[in-house]
Design a protein around this nucleic acid. Structure first.
Lengths: 344, 344
DNA sequence: GCTATACTTGCAAGCGGTTGCATAGATTGC
DNA sequence: GCAATCTATGCAACCGCTTGCAAGTATAGC
């Protein structure tokens, strides 16, 4: 691999001249430039990005560490959308994305600080779903810009995040069910460890409260984002001998699908007997029968926004700032209908 | 950010000693090591990965450029599975993944050679679906290891690829239909520009030929991997006034879903009137009604294998070698049934 | 007790670009 | 025609870590 010095020799100029030709912003006579370029051409020279990065202290790269769980919870829509969103922002700005895996929650954090500390990227978008206060504190204490996808538990005035208002939109879903006449509504959450699970649950609670509807604690079940979890949630409710809810809100589509499978086994028809709302608008949502009414969460847009804020921060050489909510949207399909047993 | 020199000063040793402590493989007295480590601790030192990379000429990173089209064709399963597969291989080996976007087929190639030439990664797994001979030639001419996901058109003895035998497994699918008594079988391909489309078509052709069945050219339609493409394929066949095929093989599930939608509109029942086989086993395949019989293509495994071969090559400091076929598997669900109008 | 051998650590030259400063030559102003 | 001002290029230090070689000290061998 030829270096800048080889090109310099070949063109009869000083290495710094070659550097200036390639980094663009410098006055170089047309003649010299041509000589350098042709020498580079002949030698097949391309500047070494690593050397450049070392010198300018910039990698043109943003990092993300893939949550170890994405096989499970995230497969349904999160990960591909996030990646696509990150690329959408990074690519046109000349940035690339550095991805690390992880094999546990703790390792996610380790990987993050590894990348940050070793300066392998100019910034990081934090995908972890369970950021504790310590971690956020440590993030703030280091100097590489970061933005969090999702809102951290504790409110720091100065950190940058983008999220969707899970509480609000889940409340909207539940309200939609209530307006259809449903009064017995179940909440099928994901992993209770995960922030979004609590937020959605709060939205559910709020909508029920506002409508003056009682919340039966047995109707709050955690399905850990798995199809089977949704399935078991229904049977669980059935087994403890409760009257069935007439509607289910599930915190992802996979669980909603599981809920529908269980209902079918119990000879309950969706949507005539029971309504079901899912979350995320995964690809299968519109193809399943009945087509699933679902809360579409704009992961791609969120990721794009996050990457934009991050790159802005990098380019301006300041910590990332700004907080943004991206709106979710309820997509009404065929799994919801007016409640037929409208108790007054 | 403290450097190795700061730590050296603090610990009262030479920078090279600090370096040796951190790079592991060097005999350092326990006492010195302890002093260095504690100094590093105090200063919050972490070695700079970029500087290290420059020095050792290795980045511990493998690259991939995301085909610009993945939104379209690839969304259905390809991309997330590939990413997951790459991470599965890279992560435990201490490698990270560098991702670049692209906005056209030409740009895909540009990005690839950019990364390669600027030494931003130690190797690359090539995802492009339309590699021409020139590109492969250029890849071979440069010195960074690469492995191709998918088999390149021309056979070079020395390049490394991993693929699934699309022709063979498509033939298997078609044979399965034939064994169910179907004789009029349509082939709904993807983008005819894409290698895999031709390979699958060849498999279709082969199975038909082997069974002595005529192939009606009107039954070969390209749906460009889109749901709508599958939908239109059916209507196209209908409109030219042909007798309907009794079975469809579609080169991805999205198109198969489109085919089923069109059939439903024509009041043809799947699978009693018409059988449908899709490809990829996308998440929606098992949830759609009727559950889709589909050829499951092991993208994740393929990507893992590719990354493994690549990393082996990197570590051994030689070009990547080896060719591997990963088997696909027909997943039989409810969209296929014996042909009821068995003509003898 | 003295030399041969093994361990540790220091030294300094890289890895391949970048960039502030200096300088030589060209241009401008009057 | 000469000083002042620009322009284009060279010089050299630097980004932060690695590593072959040399040297100093400790240990072993006889």
């Amino acid at each position: 691999m030829p270096t800048i010095r080889d090109v310099a020799d070949q063109a009869g100029v000083h290495p710094s001249t070659v550097s200036r030709v390639f980094s663009g912003n410098a006055k170089i006579s047309d003649e010299t430039r041509a000589r350098v370029l042709s020498a580079a051409q002949q030698l097949g020279f391309q500047p070494n990005a690593i050397a450049r990065s070392l010198s300018v202290r910039r990698t043109e790269t943003i990092a993300a560490v893939v949550p170890h769980v994405f096989q499970g919870y995230f497969e349904d829509a999160f990960f591909p959308q996030v990646m696509s969103g990150l690329l959408d922002a990074a690519y046109p700005r000349g940035f690339r994305i550095l991805l690390s895996g992880s094999n546990s929650h703790a390792d996610e954090i380790t990987q993050m600080f590894q990348i940050l500390g070793s300066r392998q990227a100019d910034g990081i978008v934090v995908l972890s779903t369970r950021l504790d206060v310590d971690t956020v504190g440590a993030l703030r204490r280091q100097s590489t810009p970061f933005v969090i996808l999702g809102r951290p538990v504790a409110e720091y005035p100065d950190i940058c995040w983008v999220d969707t208002d899970s509480e609000r939109y889940t409340a909207e879903c539940v309200r939609y069910l209530i307006n259809l006449g449903h009064r017995r509504i179940a909440y099928v959450g994901g992993d209770p460890e995960v922030a979004v699970t609590r937020e959605r649950q709060a939205g559910y609670q709020r909508a029920m409260d506002e409508a003056g509807l009682p919340v039966n604690p047995n109707w709050i079940v955690y399905g850990y984002f798995a199809e089977n979890g949704g399935y078991r949630a229904v049977h669980h409710i059935k087994e403890i001998g409760e009257t069935m809810p007439t509607a289910f809100y599930a915190a992802n589509d996979l669980m909603a699908i599981g809920v529908m499978r269980a209902l079918r086994e119990l000879d309950l028809c969706v949507p005539t007997d029971v309504s079901v709302i899912g979350t995320n608008d995964a690809p299968e949502a519109k193809h399943i029968f009945p087509a699933l009414t679902t809360l579409r969460v704009p992961y791609a847009k969120m990721a794009t926004k996050a990457a934009e804020l991050l790159i802005d921060a990098i380019l301006s050489d300041e910590p990332a700032t700004g907080k943004a909510y991206i709106p979710s949207r309820l997509i009404v399909r065929d799994s919801t209908a007016p409640c037929k047993t409208s108790e007054v």
